[in-house]
Design a protein around this nucleic acid. Structure first.
Lengths: 145, 145
DNA sequence: TTTCTTGTTGCGAAAATTCGCAACAAGACG
DNA sequence: CGTCTTGTTGCGAATTTTCGCAACAAGAAA
């Protein structure tokens, strides 16, 4: 696996949380399954290894790891939620509401915006992933107005 | 109701969609119920007037009206989706992943960012509502890192 | 290693959301 | 006003996500 297990475990324990086999399994699963991993895909994966691991736990752990900034939530084109490792190299998406297309957005575009939020509102926008909804080149005309 | 029914109806018909009593009822409901209206709240409301109107229709119509930019999706603090009228005066939110607090963000902050997206990517970001997740003043320290 | 505290999990049920398809009806046309 | 086309709805089942709570176990302390 490509994530630093030891470091993450230490971080969790430091915050008073526990490092359970379930959490490690789920984290490994997201890591292995790549980008845009759905909860169901995670469940399918870990369930083979640990058949008693429940769906509820998958959802809870995904949410938990996101809160800990170890994972990042991704809004997919169809509006559903997915997850991926919150790597050091953030990327973002432009999601078209009409055709569900998905444009990648380099992080650099957001730097100044993020700095503004930080300075003016003392709010640290989650840099690991952002999704902007709207209408792309092809759809902005046909969508009226 | 405060929305311009005639204008909206015309817009829908022009695009080849139909103006049904269900759609009008649901739109009125969102309008009356104010900001951050949940699908369930809409259902409760319209179901009293039209008992046969199904939940599926509520979800479908909310999604449809959002696509038509008549409604706007709102991500609430608990992560659930809500809707509101896509008025001419957009506002946005900073949602804290830790404490679920919700900060209002004036539209002006986003103007230049939006212009950039438009110019560089020919992508029209939905101005009616944006939500940024992250960590607020109180939580950014405690969340580790 | 044993004990103890309390964060976590599993389970099953509940709630929320989506789907498939036949019946229905908006609105264009004559 | 009647007819026709096809976008929409209702229903019930399937899927997805969440909840409540007792049993469990991670990890600190002795």
């Amino acid at each position: 696996m490509s994530h630093n297990t030891t470091e993450i475990n230490r971080q969790l324990r430091k915050s008073g949380y526990r490092v359970t086999p379930q959490r490690q399994l789920i984290l490994d699963a997201v890591c292995q399954l790549g980008e845009h991993v759905t909860p169901e895909a995670v469940y399918d994966h870990v369930h083979r290894i640990a058949p008693t691991l429940s769906r509820a736990t998958v959802y809870r752990v995904l949410h938990f790891l996101t809160e800990q900034r170890i994972l990042a939530m991704v809004y997919m084109a169809d509006g559903r939620l997915a997850y991926e490792m919150a790597g050091p190299e953030p990327h973002h998406h432009l999601v078209c509401r009409s055709c569900d297309s998905l444009l990648e957005l380099p992080h650099s575009v957001l730097r100044s915006f993020r700095r503004t939020m930080d300075a003016q509102y003392d709010f640290e926008i989650d840099v690991s992933h952002l999704s902007f909804f709207g209408h792309c080149t092809d759809c902005r005309d046909s969508a009226g107005a």
